[in-house]
Design a protein around this nucleic acid. Structure first.
Lengths: 144, 144
DNA sequence: TCAACTTTCACGCTGCGTTAAAGTCG
DNA sequence: CCGACTTTAACGCAGCGTGAAAGTTG
């Protein structure tokens, strides 16, 4: 089912969200106002869906507030713009933008690394408890 | 500064939360009602602080709702109780509880593994973009 | 025309932040 | 008695869920 224009309910199903959430995100400036039909019904493209999925990841995986996500998305949009212009416009002009973008990406990567490490620590502590539990269970089974 | 009894503000500083949040969690049944002074002021122990930190991890790292966290904490409390009784009470009686606890721990471990994998995927995508960006920057520096 | 969607309000719930007013601690 | 902290109570805000009432789509 590969359509490049769809109703809000289709977007909701593809992203695992609700129409209400999509309208709310649009209202808050996280999503651009999509095209409208003659009667005023929202019509979405596949690109729109991609953006929704990106935002959902930032919310669910990182638990960021919508305000913070909005900033990140604006930075990513700006980054994409800069990279396009870097090929058309002059070299020296675009370089500082590229370096700024690199710094932003590094920050994100470090932030993710920290998160991952802490989750792994939590997982290890659970794994230890599980191993200890299994020993207790095994003891019980040896001497009934 | 190792006290085993302290005011709510000290707990707040140690956990990085606010007194309001601690009182709210207590009200919602996440934290047990702590001891009170003569005048009715809450007095916390180091053990209380440990519980707060555990809850904070579940909220920040996993983004779970307070209701879900409450269930998890109750399960962990029950697990601790069962493991204590398993040494006193009969063997056959405690075994099913231990096995149920093991299943719960496995579920948590798998959930964490999934989270970690998705975060690593996100990190990889950022790393790729960063590498690509650095290529562009290097190109600009070679032909000024 | 009819079912199944859509639209814009608008109120409700969670998880606290933030005063306000009064009491406790040292 | 005083300043810093505490108490309960209450309203406010974000991020939606959940209808209600009316229009659009096929």
């Amino acid at each position: 089912v590969e359509k490049n224009t769809m109703y809000i309910d289709e977007v909701a199903k593809r992203t695992g969200l609700t129409p209400r959430t999509l309208r709310f995100w649009e209202e808050k400036g996280l999503l651009p106002s999509p095209a409208r039909s003659e009667g005023g019904v929202r019509m979405y493209s596949d690109a729109d869906v991609g953006r929704v999925i990106r935002i959902r990841e930032l919310r669910d995986l990182l638990g960021l507030s919508l305000d913070v996500i909005k900033e990140i998305m604006q930075i990513e949009d700006e980054l994409a713009q800069v990279r396009l212009k870097a090929q058309q416009v002059g070299r020296e002009e675009s370089q500082p933008y590229l370096k700024r973008s690199a710094v932003i990406l590094e920050t994100q990567i470090n932030f993710l690394g920290d998160r991952i490490a802490r989750l792994q620590a939590l997982q290890s502590s659970y794994a230890e408890q599980l191993a200890s539990l299994r020993n207790s269970i095994a003891d019980l089974e040896r001497k009934p």
